[in-house]
Design a protein around this nucleic acid. Sequence first.
DNA 1: TAAATTTGCTTGCAAATTGCAAGTGCAAAT
DNA 2: ATTTGCACTTGCAATTTGCAAGCAAATTTA
Lengths: 141, 141
Amino acid sequence: MNKSIKRSDCPVSCSLDIWGDKWSLLIIRDLMDKKQCTYGDFLKAPEGIATNILASRLQALEENKIIEKLVHPDSKAKVLYRLTNKGIDLLPIMLEINLWAEKYFPIPDERKAMLKEAKKDKAGFIKSMSRELKKQVQSTR
Amino acid sequence: MNKSIKRSDCPVSCSLDIWGDKWSLLIIRDLMDKKQCTYGDFLKAPEGIATNILASRLQALEENKIIEKLVHPDSKAKVLYRLTNKGIDLLPIMLEINLWAEKYFPIPDERKAMLKEAKKDKAGFIKSMSRELKKQVQSTR
DNA sequence: TAAATTTGCTTGCAAATTGCAAGTGCAAAT
DNA sequence: ATTTGCACTTGCAATTTGCAAGCAAATTTA
């Protein structure tokens, strides 16, 4: 795992080398939705990621500075994961993926409602959501 | 190959089920850059996709109506691939991927120049590029 | 018109990755 | 002191990937 061989200088290729698989963006989605997640939270996602795959993806994302770990304030036994600024910057991509999917798949109504808001003012939506997520990061440095 | 099991109703998950791997978006990138490609064109890409993987991805993308095949006007031996409207609608995602990568990786100067234009007026850039690609589709129906 | 070449794949097989199930070790609760 | 919860790790079978070679149809060359 974690081969760091860059296939080319293409920005798309470089990006896919980091998060171009069936699971990484789902981990990132969970963190965008819930701000912070424990290992167990990720396992609860409806797609059902296998625990060893989860561990390897979390490690790769951490090595690539997309996410970071911190000890849970309540207990040393728990670990909290959250997005770094680099990870938060994936928000525009995530939004566009949602908008594309909305056009071509039936998606949950609650998501639709959120996307309706987002479409009114994309830049504003990204900015406010980004601020929300960054608040977490700042407050624990 | 080509398992069509939907992992969940999440828009991100549904999208990844179609193009969430290390190669599909590179195929789509080539088609956005060059409008139309032959099988051989894809093999020439710097990332070096294996021929069997290429064949399986092309088939999956076609089944999912992201791309379509047509016979080359010059020769029955050649096949041309191009994006469908559904595939062209991936442009905003592709643009945001490029912009994210530009921020975090060194990328080729020519790409940078193009992105500079795109940033000035994202919606306009998407619209004109989309029109370019759709022209191809319309003219051969 | 026959032979060589190009084009778009397919096939076989080894290597890598994934996915499932069952641990393991540390912290915290009972 | 023992059980429970949490974050992983390990072993192994199944799937997927990647490399190399092959192949049939269409086109070009001789």
